[in-house]
Design a protein around this nucleic acid. Structure first.
Lengths: 146, 146
DNA sequence: AGCCAATGGTTGGAGTATCCAACCGTTGTA
DNA sequence: TACAACGGTTGGATACTCCAACCATTGGCT
């Protein structure tokens, strides 16, 4: 069940495999959690990033963050709006741009998602000390130049 | 650009966010690498797992590994077969099951994928010692009970 | 003021990925 | 020998994604 890369390969292969497995596992988790909340993994991901944006972001900013085409953001915003989790507001400063605001329902749903991820992620099983180390390592890896 | 979870949240929130960011980053990487090779991220992922299976797996085993419906595996196997990366062989022991064999082209393509991942993953920037440490942490996290 | 290019977002069309339900051939067993 | 279970496929439906074309707004330049 666990990944089984060839044992004679350098560590990095196994490591990439592990990180992919972790991502996959997390993905499955999101799927479980969200099916009760009438959300797909993609919408959950959008919700996640929406809440993590400093002021509520314009659509273009979310597009950049999710690395998706602007038209895809239109699609996702439509779905989230249908579900009452989000509203588009025209920015008075620049009437072309539309700001994405989470509604109260949106914040509550996002909260449930975050909570479930935090408690049920495989990472949550690690000790506090291990979590700190893991954070340090990942942060340094991600900080490296592209 | 980097994830910015609320600073007053427990570590685990930021950690989950980091691991998602890593997965996302890796995903974007795969996409870049594979577009040259006429593969989508999904097919690349299937190829990855195919090569990591001990003997060549039956379709059902790949379905379990990818957590996908059997009909989805049919679809993916069709695409990989079209591209000449894979053949289905009926198992003589049990003529219902079909074994998925990578072709030479399949192995070469997979090799290119693995190589690109290993050299261009953010994880590759870490020192050997850090990589070992990270491997240890991830392995222990994944080994925990479901 | 008046063009014009750039910007932010939407629409339409196409292709990929995914599930579910219904199915077909094979197998093992009562 | 029936018949249930298994492994995979087909058909239909939906979600997601991109690209190209488009519309409205804006900012710069004359």
């Amino acid at each position: 069940m666990t990944p089984t890369p060839a044992a004679d390969e350098p560590l990095i292969y196994e490591l990439v495999d592990l990180s992919l497995a972790l991502a996959d596992h997390t993905q499955a988790l999101v799927q479980d959690v969200m099916s009760e909340l009438n959300l797909t993994p993609t919408l959950a991901n959008a919700l996640w990033h929406l809440g993590a944006c400093a002021p509520d972001p314009p659509m273009s900013k979310l597009a950049a963050r999710l690395r998706r085409d602007p038209s895809t953001i239109t699609f996702l915003a439509d779905r989230l709006q249908e579900r009452g989790l989000l509203v588009r507001d025209v920015d008075p400063q620049n009437r072309r741009t539309k700001i994405l605001h989470l509604t109260d329902a949106g914040r509550i749903t996002r909260r449930a998602l975050v909570e479930a991820m935090a408690t049920r992620s495989p990472i949550a099983h690690l000790s506090d000390k291990d979590q700190r180390h893991l954070h340090d390592l990942l942060a340094r890896a991600m900080a490296a130049p592209p």
